[in-house]
């Protein structure tokens, strides 16, 4: 069943993922799956913010302070990004521990 996130969802990145900055992007490694993922500059910021459990609304607030972006687009894009990372298993929902 697909788990739909909303702005109050609390997410954090999985502690066992190893990442490195390349240019202004980030590449992270999922050792369990043996897969590499690349994320862009904004995605890297979300990655850094989600080191500790944080709501998607708080991520958006932080991003709007860092980048020139309107609120509606920021919310939509952030939600979609977090949704994809939760589905790939790179982010976890706070309720999952």
């Amino acid at each position: 069943m697909r788990l739909e996130l909303d702005m109050d969802s609390i997410v954090s990145r999985r502690a066992d993922l190893v990442a490195t900055d390349i240019d202004q992007d980030k590449v992270f490694l999922d050792i369990a799956l043996g897969k590499y993922y690349g994320i862009n500059r904004v995605g890297s910021s979300i990655w850094d913010i989600a080191e500790q459990p944080v709501s998607i609304a708080d991520i958006c607030r932080e991003l709007m302070g860092r980048f020139e972006i309107d609120e509606a687009t920021c919310k939509k894009e952030t939600l979609a990004f977090c949704q994809s990372l939760v589905e790939s298993g790179s982010f976890v929902l706070a309720s999952e521990g």
Binding site: T20, I22, D23, L29, Y36
Partner: peptide, 21 residues
Amino acid sequence: FSDLNRSLQLRQLSKVQELLE
């Protein structure tokens, strides 16, 4: 430079994977 840096960083990540294994 950019390509070199990228390929080395990816290699370093694979070393991390090996270390943890």
